[in-house]
Design a protein around this nucleic acid. Structure first.
Lengths: 186, 186
DNA sequence: TGACAAATAGTCAGTACTGAGTATAATGAT
DNA sequence: ATCATTATACTCAGTACTGACTATTTGTCA
């Protein structure tokens, strides 16, 4: 995943510093990945060793040297291979919250309900945020690219909406299973 | 996550070998986690060092010694802390396939369509499988526990269905954007 | 023009995870 | 009785990731 993004960005936007790659990831993909800077450098080093990218130091006027990375032909080949491999990865989610739910019998229902209520409002807010980002992004994109960008946004939107549906269902069912827990205030 | 599962299982089912814990995870949670054996041992060792579990070697008749792990009172405290923390983790998915989609302009449409068609049939199949597991599992569970178990199953079902909806949408949109690509056979 | 914040460009040590391997015990097939 | 699987129980070395840190440069406001 990370190498695919890095190689792809290097091929699309030309040679870059590690920091610039991180910038590109933030500008273009902030909603979809959370890759950290040290992770970028880790993979750049690895790929440099493997000959997939070329690292050349550039020292221009200002003293400290920076390292610029550039995809090699071998890197371009690897990019295509990763692209095809990633395209065929199957969806296999795990949800952290399921673990706490599995042990939910050791928690008082009102604590569950509180957590789910928080989750609900956060999800509502997030869905709106992504819808807004989608509108802004698609507005300034050529049609051909806009199709896949739109798909990525909708991918996230659909799953956030599914999560919201689930959270609301959970609230209903917990209330049904443990009626009249409201007096648990303190 | 992993420590939460391990501590919870030790508290619920009593002292266990690492291998037995892995077994419990498989029997009870196979659809929801993919924790591997070495990961179990890694956390057991860590938690033993931290005093959250007690490791005592038992040698009974048969020669080779096994290590049995048992949650300590400190472990029980930690379990509750983890349970509450996990309950409040926010949903933040990332989808590998989005990365390939982001670079989709470098791929011929029919390759995308092929991959998505495969994804569609796999998802259909998986949804059915989970529905079946759900029915089987809920049938032999007391009502109180069945509520949370049902919620966990439905959590996965809703997201798999969202993924299916998205894949079908993607197929439609790709076909619209690149009409008549069928002649690309070879 | 000095000084303080923000952006740029990294490094490093520590954590988490797991594929591949080891070794013995129980079970079933022939 | 013996051999082959399968189940049990665990280890180790390598990969991936990242929080916390360092250090320089570039505004920017007084």
């Amino acid at each position: 995943m990370v190498p695919l993004y890095i190689l792809g960005l290097l091929l699309r936007f030309g040679p870059q510093h590690g920091y610039q790659i991180k910038k590109l990831l933030e500008e273009q993909l902030a909603d979809f990945t959370q890759i950290k800077l040290p992770t970028v450098y880790y993979h750049l080093d690895k790929m440099a060793t493997a000959g997939l990218v070329l690292a050349h130091t550039d020292r221009q006027g200002a003293r400290p040297e920076k390292t610029v990375y550039e995809a090699t032909p071998a890197g371009a080949k690897q990019f295509e291979a990763l692209l095809r491999k990633t395209l065929h990865t199957t969806y296999r989610p795990t949800f952290d919250i399921d673990a706490s739910l599995y042990f939910a019998d050791t928690l008082p229902p009102h604590e569950l309900l509180l957590a789910f209520a928080e989750a609900e409002s956060w999800l509502c807010h997030t869905v709106q945020l992504i819808e807004q980002h989608k509108a802004e992004t698609l507005a300034c994109l050529p049609t051909q690219v806009a199709v896949s960008a739109g798909l990525i946004f909708d991918h996230h939107l659909l799953h956030y909406q599914a999560e919201l549906t689930w959270v609301r269902q959970a609230i209903r069912r917990i209330k049904e299973a443990a009626p009249h827990d409201e007096n648990e205030s303190n």
